[in-house]
Design a protein around this nucleic acid. Structure first.
Lengths: 336, 336
DNA sequence: CTGAAAGCGCTTACAG
DNA sequence: CTGAAAGCGCTTACAG
């Protein structure tokens, strides 16, 4: 049932009439080989369909040619785009990418997942937004696995960083609400407290209000979860306030979509009586109605940059830690 | 422990005062070990933080403990759910899952991706919906990699199959439109012709009309692409027909969402003047308004079943090829 | 119940 | 420009 005997490097050597040393070098290109010999070896490789055994190679080289992406939610469209960006770059380099989920609550927790991945001796790990413990990060770094963190600050731990300019993006969005549009009571619905990108985005909201000479209306700030459910709960709370908001800034699009649900259900017109904004610009942002005013989070490009950074490191770049910041872009649609 | 020397099995053996053979057997549980010895070894493993090198193990066992999922579009929510289902089962078994994209058009093509994966000696592959060549499939099977195909028929190639009851699901949906609801002119917007799951779903539509003693209104059938854009183009065509439809059945949710766009833009009330239905029940289906009436495609459950099937095979099940069919479920919301 | 040793299939110093 | 051989870190017959 299982195919014939796998062809190995000795078979190729025999077919080409050379040593396995030479076959190996033809394949890797790591030392000069005469044109004639090279041709014979390449021909044998092709004829026999030889593909080196990755376990044997990995045992020798101490490399797995595999990198990992760890995210809290594999079905979140932002993370999916991220994965697509990483894969595009990694695939071209012959690196395999494994995407692992470590939910914030429920399911295998982050330390357990990171443990699995270091056990697998991955060459590098891209760590999606997380409230990761410093100890977890140090464990990765200590294991020799290269690390790229997403959406946090370079000072927060080992490894390189790629992030969007989130504070700036949110500041511009809220500046637009508070200035041009003249909304007076602007509330905020965040995700889980302490989980990025909540802090960055809240900070942008705060700064924009401060610029406009206002303070954060504490009674209009709620922290829930980065989900549609969270948005529903948060919006319900805000609309029940003694003095309800005329605009609500949400920490991501899913929360905003939940807020839209509540507004529709209660007959609150958007944006007439309540403006609603999101963050990320996931596909659904333009599918709901009214379509969401939001900020583009360049997920795919973040993924590409992270993969390039990782590959540089694997190629021996041992320079100081780097931080790559990608620009934001506000998208005005119908909801605000 | 600055990424210095990795601890290996000899270190554990030395620390526990036993042979590496015994350490290996304590870990694998493949032969009896006295309780006292076992305790000492387990203690040493814990103290030293030992994790077996997967390359070394793989070289010996000829296993990679890794499975692959290949899909045409990694950002499609259906495929994401599929991946989540597979991973949940695989992770619990200590199997790593790699998700690879092989676009129908553009990007690395299917044979190239399958080549990469067989080179990696994956233990098993789950192949998402595809117009895969028989030769590609035979290549996988011949390499000893176990194969599960999704959404096709068992007779179409080697390996096992998992699929939803799509013809049945669509038949029930259209039966509901044509019977209970009394829609008279029911149009159909399909994706690319010849690409699954288009055929299955069209067939269900056709059967339901036949049951109701009607024929397919040829002027109300259009084939575009499985995207929101495709839905817009298709709906525009149908609404421009000499005798427009009062209901339009779409081959998936994205198409239906595009149809909703066109209806809104033209001021055609849904479902009052035009009913719209989708298929898959992706997250966005309940986010748009009116919320989509659609059919649940149990993506996550399909993933779970595929992973279980694969694991059975890896555990030595050499029985005849199996086909698992999962039931459908119509979800009635506001759009029809 | 336990251990010594072969060998999985590569890559890479070392040698010519 | 090329080859013989060591060795990467495990698992598993084989032996006691």
């Amino acid at each position: 049932m299982h195919g014939s005997r796998r062809v190995k490097i000795v078979d190729v050597a025999a077919a080409a009439g050379v040593s396995v040393t030479t076959v190996s070098h033809v394949i890797s290109g790591r030392r000069p080989v005469s044109a004639a010999t090279r041709a014979r070896v390449e021909d044998a490789v092709r004829r026999l369909g030889y593909q080196a055994d990755p376990s044997a190679r990995g045992l020798r080289t101490q490399r797995t040619d595999t990198i990992g992406l760890v995210v809290p939610d594999i079905t979140n469209p932002f993370n999916t785009e991220l994965a697509a960006g990483i894969q595009a770059i990694a695939y071209a380099r012959g690196l395999l990418t494994v995407v692992c989920e470590a939910p914030i609550t429920g399911g295998p927790r982050l330390p357990a997942v990171l443990g699995q991945l270091t056990a697998r001796r991955l060459d590098g790990i891209v760590l999606g937004r997380f409230g990761a413990q410093r100890a977890d990060l140090d464990l990765i770094a200590a294991s020799g696995t290269r690390l790229v963190r997403l959406g946090t600050r370079i000072a927060d731990g080992p490894g390189d960083v790629v992030r969007g300019a989130e504070t700036e993006g949110m500041r511009e969005l809220v500046r637009y609400l508070a200035g041009e549009h003249g909304y007076r009571r602007i509330g905020f619905i965040g995700g889980e407290t302490g989980v990025e990108p909540g802090g960055e985005r809240y900070e942008g909201y705060r700064q924009a209000l401060a610029e406009a000479g206002r303070t954060v209306p504490e009674d209009l700030t709620v922290w829930t979860g980065f989900t549609r459910e969270g948005g529903r709960a948060g919006a319900a709370r805000l609309l029940d306030a003694a003095e309800p908001p005329d605009a609500v800034v949400c920490a991501n699009d899913l929360i905003a979509i939940g807020a839209l649900d509540v507004a529709r259900q209660r007959g609150v017109h958007v944006p007439g009586r309540l403006a609603v904004t999101g963050y990320d610009d996931i596909d659904a942002a333009s599918m709901v109605s009214p379509a969401l005013t939001t900020v583009v989070n360049p997920a795919r490009e973040i993924g590409r940059s992270a993969a390039r950074l990782l590959i540089d490191r694997l190629d021996g770049d041992d320079g100081p830690a780097r931080e790559i910041v990608l620009t934001h872009q506000v998208v005005r649609r119908a909801s605000a």
